[in-house]
Design a protein around this nucleic acid. Structure first.
Lengths: 111, 111
DNA sequence: CCCACTAGTGCGCAGTGCGCAGTACCGTCC
DNA sequence: GGACGGTACTGCGCACTGCGCACTAGTGGG
């Protein structure tokens, strides 16, 4: 099974969740997601997601110069973002529950 | 949040799970998935998934004529399919757990 | 000087679910 | 007996989104 396909639609949620914890910039969000267990997220995906969420009006953005490299573009949740996070989390939970029920109903091959 | 995106990569798993329960044909699998809570799966997606899984060697197939409509193309899991189901279920569980942890870590806005 | 790490952007591709149209078989209703 | 609706499957092209890869650019080290 391809884990990158599982990310479809969920990466938004993951990024929102990470940013709700604390503002962050792309490179850092990638690290946090990896640390959280999403080992194989590609950086391009995260940057793209951030831009998409920003364009959708869910994020605020501000640039902070760095002493150890190029500037960092920080992103943070605004009200719309928090609402979106809430809604997405709810949708996800419902979906996950449905899948869990579907899997529980199958013959117990690997008990 | 778009539920159709959540299905990406998971539809295989859902179809495998449904077929593990009992052999079925496309039209029927759609109904079973809908009944299981996956309300908005499109039939074309299920047919496509079945063909893909069959092409991948995970399914057996046999045609059964029907007295109340066109023939039905039944699909069933073979050993490879069951192995795939097992692996996919495991992958999914791990992924779902990771997401759950990520969501649990966020500030409790909607306790 | 070249390389590695940090940080971001852009382009085009790939997988997969969906919409929609079409085919075909059956029973019913007018 | 022809139109219609439910059953059942196929095919085509589109949309979304994650990924690979190349590129820019700043910093510090061998």
């Amino acid at each position: 099974m391809d884990t990158t396909q599982l990310l479809k639609g969920v990466l938004d949620l993951a990024v929102l969740a990470v940013l709700d914890d604390e503002d962050g910039y792309g490179y850092d969000v990638v690290r946090r997601l990896r640390a959280a267990g999403l080992d194989d997220v590609a950086d391009a995906s995260v940057y793209g997601t951030l831009r998409r969420l920003f364009a959708a009006g869910h994020l605020t953005s501000y640039v902070v110069p760095s002493v150890e490299g190029p500037h960092r573009k920080y992103y943070g949740l605004n009200a719309s973002g928090r609402a979106e996070l809430d809604a997405a989390a709810k949708t996800w939970s419902g979906f996950a529950d449905t899948m869990a029920a579907l899997l529980a109903a199958r013959k117990e091959v690997a008990a």
